[in-house]
């Protein structure tokens, strides 16, 4: 099989790493070789964060090559724009509308791009762009921290992996008292359903 490449991006504190840990576990439990790479460092809080997750028969580099991202999960709207060279026409882009305004914008030295501009650029790059209201849905569920799990639920509709595997991976990674909430978030995301144009991976 071809390696499947997931690029998860957002802002420090949004649960990018938690989501990528779950996704890596799902891949491993589903029987794939898995690699996951992230960078810690100077951006403890408020910096942009990205995590590469790769599933395959044998995965070598922990870093996704340019133009080989199959799924981009952006937990913050404009963050999706930072990774254009990594995308291709068939990339599925799941982009949360949530905005976290950086200090450069509050300080007045930069401007936050409009939703229309973000969408227009991403649609020029990929045939499978989609806004996700993960942050809003999570807030309505009473805990904005589960936005990342909602997006994972939506992602699961594009992948050939059994529900149990997802739930098992989630249960292993989230604190016990939040397991039920995270299951509900995942199911809410799953209920959003795949857009028919996109392919189910791995095929067959």
């Amino acid at each position: 099989m071809q390696t499947i490449n997931f690029l998860l991006v957002g802002v420090g504190g949004q649960g990018v790493l938690m989501a990528s840990n779950i996704l890596a576990s799902v891949g491993m439990m589903a029987g794939y070789d898995v690699k996951k790479s992230e960078i810690h460092g100077m951006s403890q809080r408020g910096g942009n964060v990205s995590s590469h997750v790769r599933w395959g028969e044998a995965v070598f580099s922990p870093i996704i090559p340019d133009a080989e991202t199959d799924f981009l999960l952006a937990f913050e709207a404009m963050e999706a724009l930072r990774y254009l060279p990594m995308l291709k026409r068939a990339s599925v882009l799941l982009v949360d509308r949530h905005r976290i305004v950086p200090v450069t914008v509050t300080g007045g030295s930069a401007e936050y791009p409009a939703y229309e501009a973000i969408e227009s650029v991403l649609r020029q790059v990929s045939d499978n762009f989609r806004w996700v209201d993960g942050a809003d849905m999570a807030a309505a569920m009473g805990n904005s921290r589960v936005a990342n799990i909602i997006t994972l639920g939506l992602l699961s509709t594009y992948l050939n992996v059994a529900d149990d595997v997802w739930k098992d991976a989630i249960a292993r990674r989230v604190p016990k008292k939040f397991t039920e909430l995270n299951f509900r978030a995942w199911e809410a995301g799953r209920a959003l359903r795949r857009e028919s144009a996109a392919v189910l991976m791995p095929a067959g």
Binding site: V11, S43, G46, G47, N48, D66, A67, M78, L81, R82, L84, P85, M86, L87, K88, R89, P102, V103, T104, V105, A110, E111, Y112, P113, A114, A117, I118, S120, V121, Q124, V125
Partner: peptide, 15 residues
């Protein structure tokens, strides 16, 4: 990799 799309906005940095 894709060419830079038309009307690409500046993406503010998060220092």
């Amino acid at each position: 990799p894709p060419e830079t799309p038309r009307a690409m906005p500046d993406v503010p940095v998060r220092p």
